[in-house]
Structure formats: C-alpha cells, structure tokens
C-alpha cells in the first residue's frame, strides 16, 4: 500500500499493524536497546519496555516541573547526578524528592503516553519505529517495565478510544479552534478544575493538541482524547477538510534538550 492510498482511504489512515514492526521480534529475543522511529523511541531491557520518549508527549521531567511538583533545579540535579549511572528515578526517591508511588505513576503515564506517538506518529507518511540501537539505555533508569504485548494492547485500545470519541484524525494535528461561545455553552465554573476544561481554555485557535498538552504539563494522549470529545460536543470546530496535515511539521519541544542523547555521547567519549 502506498502512502497516497492511505491518505485517500479517509480520515484515519490505516497504518501497518503493530505486529508488523520489529517490536514483537525484539521482545521475543529478550533484547536490550532503543527502538527509534521518526518521532521518538522505545527503550527495551531484556525484551520489556522500560521507557518511551517522543517530542509529542511531555516527558517525566516536564510533567514534574510544569506544576511545581519539583523545581527545575531539583530535576536537573537528579539528571546530572543520577543520569550517568542510568538511575535518575532512583536518585529522586533516595533523596526524598519523590515517593516511589509518585515516580511510578508519573513514569508509567509518560511511558504509555509517549509510546502511543512512537507507534502511531501524528501526520501522514510517518513510519513506525524500525531502527534498533543495541545496548542503548535510558538515563532515567528502570522504574516498572511493561511487557510488549501489554503495551501493544494498550496502544491499540487507545486508538479505538479516539475513534469512538470522534472519528476524524484531522483534529489531532490541527490548531484547536473553540466555537465562539464555547465557554458560555459549557456552563461556568463547574468544570474549571477538570482537565478537559483546562484544554478548552487553552485552545486559542493557534496551538495544536500536542502544544496544549505541553503548555499544561498534561499527557498528550489525554489531550487528544479531550479535543476529540470536545469536538463531538460541538465545542471545538473540526478543521477544514481542505487543509492538509502533511505540510504541518510536528511541533518541536522548545528548549528541551535531548538529554538522553547527550549522556550517551558523553558515555561513548569517556569509553574511548
């Protein structure tokens, strides 16, 4: 199937089944390393997924600092001191910065969130991950590994959730445009504290769901789902079918360095 055929198929291009990519094979081998795609990577350890990162999804550090759970300095300290030994997460817990429960909740949420965008990149013509860097490890360190079948099942389930909420993938990557009286129609105040309300408030007709997620420190998939549900409720205007998503580059994470890459490079240099 060509990319053109996928685009012509309708609102949601059917991507190759998750089973077709090398993930299941690597799990079977019990492989350790990083599986890179066009937008992010999955880290495996002994065949289980221990981490996922994608520029589309706010990472653990961003989430913990976005609302002040940790100060940026505390996070930096943990990355600097714990990163080289691949144990940033343990460092945070050992130094009383976070409870083990918080670390696990935040990390698992970030892992599943990023994994969705690695396996189903937004925008047409993006391929699932296929480049595997053996023995690559992530500086956060293992927290709670997830088996590959469990991850694939969850990613597929999330895909169905989006389709059930609003069957048009165009809203995922387009600027979120609220209808003029969305705030009033929704009723004042009552839902001010819930996430979906925050997403509606952050919708300014310019930012895409991924950019809103970053601004709020909120999981990107949850924000996609919010946007689709708000579209179904008539509070967000579906994008004009005439605009093509392919021209629109995936928003880059502003000012977020590829720490993982930097640490790997330093390790490699030191090993020389």
């Amino acid at each position: 199937m060509t990319a053109g055929a996928a685009e012509a198929a309708g609102t949601t291009p059917v991507r190759p089944a998750v089973e077709d990519d090398p993930l299941a094979r690597l799990a079977g081998e019990g492989a350790t390393g990083a599986l890179h795609g066009p937008v992010g990577a999955l880290y495996l350890s002994d065949g289980a997924v221990v981490h996922a990162e994608s520029p589309a999804a706010p990472d653990v550090g961003w989430r913990l600092t976005a609302r002040g759970r940790l100060s940026p300095e505390t996070w930096e300290e943990a990355v600097t001191q714990g990163g080289p030994g691949y144990r940033t997460g343990d460092f945070l817990v050992e130094h009383g910065r976070l409870s083990q429960g918080e670390l696990e909740l935040c990390h698992l949420s970030a892992l599943f969130d990023a994994a969705y965008f690695v396996l189903y990149p937004l925008g047409d013509g993006q391929r699932p991950p296929e480049r595997f860097l053996r023995e690559a490890r992530h500086w956060l360190g293992p927290v709670r590994p997830v088996t590959v079948p469990a991850l694939q099942r969850e990613v597929r389930r999330r895909r169905r959730l989006l389709e059930q909420a609003w069957p048009g993938a165009a809203v995922d990557a387009a600027p979120v445009v609220p209808v003029p009286d969305a705030d009033r129609r929704r009723g004042r105040g009552a839902q001010a504290v819930c996430g979906r309300r925050a997403v509606l408030r952050a919708a300014d007709g310019v930012r895409t769901p991924v950019q809103i997620a970053r601004a709020l420190g909120r999981p990107a998939f949850a924000t996609l789902l919010d946007v689709r549900r708000l579209t179904a409720l008539g509070l967000i205007r579906p994008p004009d079918p005439g605009t093509t998503e392919a021209d629109r580059p995936l928003p880059e994470a502003p000012g977020v360095p590829e720490t993982s890459l930097l640490i790997r490079i330093r390790d490699a240099l030191e090993a020389l």
């Binding site: 009552a190 819930c194 979906r196």
Partner: peptide, 20 residues
C-alpha cells in the same frame, strides 16, 4: 467531569493550586 458532583468546590483549594 459532571457539574453536579463538582459544583460545590468551584473556587476551592484545588482550583487555586491549578490542579486537575
């Protein structure tokens, strides 16, 4: 997400902290 169950605390501590 329902307004009936969440109404009572619209200006409560959760909102001041900006938390969901």
């Amino acid at each position: 997400e329902s307004s009936a169950f969440t109404q009572a605390e619209q200006a409560g501590p959760a909102e001041r902290a900006g938390q969901a």
